[in-house]
Design a binder for these strands. Structure first.
Length: 812
RNA sequence: GCCGAAGUGGCGGAAUUGGCAGACGCGACGGUCUCAAACACCGUUGGGCGUAAAGCCCGUGCCGGUUCGAGUCCGGCCUUCGGCACCA
């Protein structure tokens, strides 16, 4: 009587119906409590692959689950559409980046719709739309007004072969990814955001449910170090200011036997003596040619040259030589160090290679510090060779030395971060134009808000000139100064695409607002995001930038609260059946279209969720698909065939208990993103129903309620088949607009419990007792068991451990 | 080198606060239905000893510890993956 389960007829039917009825639209006037479920928006590469399905179908299930739980859910989608691939396509194949991008978006939209995602398409955003980047530019102006945007000289990756600036991602092992030329560093004036102003606050993850993995990576990236800034007077005529160094070990200052400056340090030119000028200049020039990657290699020998100048140790008056070396980085601390070879491995290696003094200033239980050291050691006992500090225990040494430095005016306690300001300039075409104008008279002038957006010109020629293609477009570049009206030029750099994605979750709440990025009401209603899901590759950059952006917006009174995303979940990486990253060349690509064609959308979604824990990822092996297909078929069967013979209804109670256990488990599993175990529980309930149908003894009302509960619980995971079954059972449209089943604890309580009986910790028997039996009852029943008494052998139990309702352990 | 996560059957993986290791699924084997196939369904499936029963022993990367009891906690290793990497 019932026809077979055929996903290919029911899936398009429901997709069209949901869309026509707009049942997934998020309404701002909905009175139910709001829930903002966000999945990282894709780059429009033009092909939706299995990774996208893996990233997006579980949050779709979560969004559907929250809706059924009575939330008004915002589950939006859009495209992160600026960036390099479009520009590369333009350079290589002569296509227009805009056409290429929008063509891909059209294609991906179609593919995304097939997924059965409950996205609110009316809120779609595309970051390369002028309606969107209008507000990206507005944000830039706000940050500039607030003093958080500034210009400075910074190194860019320069490919001498292509005559162009490369993004970090285009540099592979120090070589240009296209021409294989060694990449050089070129200094350009570029725009930065002062993310470092927020370094301290960004270390605080209080009240956030973020994976520890991510918070740890962010902490390491920010890299807070405590120590001191110490000032060493320089013994060079005409140089009055002292040389400032940052150190985490001010307690080793008496062991400082030389100073090292980064080759790019400001002072180098001024302190170098005539006799050393040639070697120093040569070394500085050589350094600029060395790539960052080579330079950072710890394997490299520690090179460096003497400047001829000396500094004075403010603690003991020692006159110590000043060197330059590329193991000191100009971007960290003050770009200069006091070198303490006895207690720092790098300084030790440098001192050994260049014949410099090594003076230990801590003693050590296993090392004779009166003899030449064989290696640096960092952990010592008490201070030695340190004048008035001799004998100070290691634990007290740092505060003592800092206190002394502060009293003497030789330095102060200080904190340094590894985090650098965010370089946002790109010498590229396909990005948001930076809304600034350069005027000879007025300097840098912001474009007035009323003139936004600064629209990206079209029909651009891509020639490798080393500058953004925008510089070629005279009619775009030449503009009147907004301040004085004289001839001026537009900024031709564009914004890092990470800026587009730093605030997109805010735009979704009010995506068509022409007056501002979003209204205060919509902001208060939806933000911050309840759950944000996406790949771990964004653990640092994107997720740190968006936190910075939010905090800056908060300080400007634009948003409320301290963090943009309360909860974060990183899904794992899905790889090919062979365990390798899916790639065409390996031939291990699983194409979603083929999976859908063979098994249907619901089966593919469920298989991806069933494969293992969502945060773990792993190989996608289609060989497991039959299990999911069988389950959906069995679900179809129990839901479409008639109820079993009720008999005396004796089996009803067990079925009710099984149903409610499933409600409980599936609810907590989906809340915790454990979709794999949720499906396992649903399979079990399906099996229970299949069995009950054969054996009978279930009254019809109970049967119907269990079947319908099973359909409701499955709906978020397999949305099409469940709506079809719901309809066929004559229930009101749509299953996705029904309430989530309520769990009733009292219905799963059993009359009897099975107690495991152990003797000396080994399971020997099981006894069935009434629920709530006392320890004495359990003990009596256990000792009555022949299997148990065989092991006890008449010995007196030394001790009995009873875990009520679970276990009894007799120790003899 | 540093930081983080993980290691469980032939395979993917289960296992609240320490309490029956291997849920659920794949595969395999045996069977029902069928002219046959598909679909569906039933049974067995960690290893060893043992007659197939009962029963016993071993078993969650390795070594040791805590505990009545350890996949879970502690100490020390090994391996894999991810991140950072001369950060003073």
């Amino acid at each position: 009587m019932a026809d077979r389960y055929d996903p290919h007829t029911i899936e398009p039917k429901w997709r069209e119906r949901w869309e026509a009825d707009g049942i997934y639209r998020a309404r701002d006037d909905d009175e139910r409590p709001p829930w903002y479920q966000l999945t990282m928006f894709p780059y429009p590469s033009g092909d939706l692959h299995t990774g996208h399905w893996y990233a997006m179908t579980p949050p779709d299930a979560a969004a559907r689950f929250r809706r059924m739980q009575g939330h008004s859910v915002l589950f939006p989608i859009g495209f992160d559409a600026f960036g390099l691939p479009a520009e590369n396509a333009a350079i290589q194949r002569g296509v227009d980046p805009k056409e290429w991008t929008y063509g891909n978006i059209d294609q991906m939209r179609q593919q995304l719709r097939i997924m059965g995602g409950s996205f609110d398409w009316e809120r779609e955003i595309v970051t390369c739309d002028p309606d969107y980047y209008h507000w990206t530019q507005w944000w830039f102006l706000k940050l500039y007004e607030r003093g958080l945007a500034y210009r400075a000289e910074a190194a860019a990756n320069w490919c001498p072969g292509c005559h162009t600036v490369l993004a970090n991602e285009q540099v592979l092992d120090g070589l240009c990814e296209r021409s294989d030329d060694p990449v050089e560093r070129r200094f350009l004036t570029q725009w930065f955001f002062r993310i470092t102003d927020y370094a301290e606050e960004l270390l605080d993850f209080g009240g956030m449910e973020w994976p520890e993995r991510v918070t740890t990576m962010q902490r390491n990236w920010i890299g807070r170090s405590e120590g001191a800034n110490l000032r060493f007077p320089v013994d060079v005529e005409g140089v009055d200011e002292p040389l400032s160094v940052f150190t985490t070990r001010p307690d080793t200052v008496y062991g400082a036997t030389f100073m090292v400056l980064a080759p790019e340090h400001d002072l180098v030119g001024r302190i170098t003596t005539d006799g050393q000028r040639e070697v120093v200049d040569g070394y500085v020039a050589a350094t600029s040619r060395v790539t960052e990657i080579e330079r950072l290699s710890t394997e490299r020998e520690k090179t460096g040259v003497f400047t001829g100048a000396y500094a004075v140790n403010p603690f003991n008056g020692a006159r110590i030589p000043i060197w330059i070396a590329d193991y000191v980085l100009v971007t960290y601390g003050t770009g200069a160090i006091m070198a303490v070879p006895a207690h720092d491995e790098r300084d030790f290696a440098f001192a050994r290679d260049h014949g410099l003094d090594v003076i230990p200033v801590f003693d050590h239980p296993e090392i004779d510090v009166s003899r030449p050291l064989e290696a640096a050691f960092t952990e010592g006992g008490a201070m030695v060779n340190s004048g008035p500090f001799d004998g100070t225990p290691a634990n007290d040494a740092i505060p003592a030395v800092i206190a002394h430095a502060e009293a003497e005016g030789a330095g102060t306690g200080a904190v340094t971060y590894r985090l650098r300001d965010w370089l946002i300039s790109r010498q590229r075409y396909w990005g948001t134009p930076i809304p600034m104008i350069h005027c000879e008279a007025c300097g840098v002038v912001p474009v007035p808000e009323t003139d936004l957006p600064v629209v990206l010109p079209e029909n651009v020629r891509f020639e490798p000139t080393g500058q953004s293609p925008l510089t070629q477009i005279e009619e775009w570049v030449n503009v009147d100064c907004p301040s004085c009206g004289s001839a001026a030029r537009r900024e031709t750099d564009t914004l890092d695409t990470f800026m587009c994605s730093s605030w997109y979750q805010m735009r979704y709440v009010d995506p068509h607002n022409p007056e501002r990025p979003f209204s205060a009401e919509t902001m208060r209603r939806w933000l911050p995001v309840d759950v944000y899901t996406g790949g771990a590759e964004h653990a640092v950059m994107h997720l740190l930038y968006t936190r910075f952006f939010w905090k800056a917006a908060r300080d400007m009174g634009i948003v409320e609260g301290d963090e943009p995303m309360k909860r974060l979940f990183n899904q794992g990486v899905i790889v090919g059946p062979d365990g390798n990253r899916m790639s065409k060349s390996r031939g291990n690509v699983v194409a979603p279209d083929e999976q859908v064609e063979q098994h249907g959308v619901d089966a593919f979604r469920c298989q991806l969720m069933f494969i293992g824990p969502w945060d773990q990822g792993g190989p996608y092996n289609p060989s497991g698909m039959p299990g999911i297909v069988r389950w959906l078929n069995r679900l179809w069967t129990v839901a479409t065939e008639s109820a079993p013979d009720p008999g005396d209804g004796a089996a009803s109670r067990d079925l009710v208990a099984a149903t409610h256990r499933t409600i409980r488990d599936v609810t907590t599993d989906i809340e915790g993103s454990r979709f794999n175990t949720a499906i396992a529980r649903l399979m079990e309930l399906t099996t229970a129903l299949t069995r009950a149908r054969e054996t009978g003894g279930v009254d019809t009302a109970t049967w119907e309620r269990s079947v319908e509960t099973l359909i409701l619980l499955t709906a978020p995971l397999a949305p099409h088949i469940t709506d079809e079954l719901w309809e066929r059972r004559g229930k009101p449209y749509s299953v996705h607009q029904q309430a989530w089943p309520e769990f009733d604890e009292s219905l799963v309580v059993e009359d009897t419990v099975e107690i495991v009986v152990q003797v000396n910790g080994k399971v020997r028997d099981r006894v069935t007792l009434p629920a709530g039996a006392s320890e004495d009852d359990a003990r009596e029943r256990a000792l009555a068991s022949e299997r148990v008494s065989n092991w006890v052998e008449g010995k007196q139990p030394r001790r009995v451990i009873y875990v009520p309702g679970k276990l009894l352990n007799i120790v003899v």
